[in-house]
Amino acid sequence: MQEQINAVLIHPSDNVAVAIREIQPGEAILGLKQKISARQNIPRNHKVALVEISIGAKIIKYGETIGIAIQGIEPGDWVHTHNLKAEEI
């Protein structure tokens, strides 16, 4: 049976999921093993943190590093350019 979801986890080792519609603050993130709620508004196709990510830790999507946290990130936080920067190449 398929359940209603509002986020997709792409790779099992990812620490962020992708919102497939806009998620309101306080709203539950559906489609994951963890029970978490959004702490801010998550725009459609944007990322939401699934675990605590400390400053300097890697943001993992597709099972690979897409950037480094530049702020402490809590589960349910919107993750984007304000709290993530590209890894130095």
């Binding site: 919102a19 459609r44 990322k47 943001i59 597709y62 099972g63 897409i66 984007h80 350019t81």
Partner: peptide
Amino acid sequence: NIEGGLSTIQEKALGCIIKAGN
């Protein structure tokens, strides 16, 4: 791309490369 939710060039490129799995 950034408005659409992609934060870094790595994230955008990985969305394409993931076609090849891991």
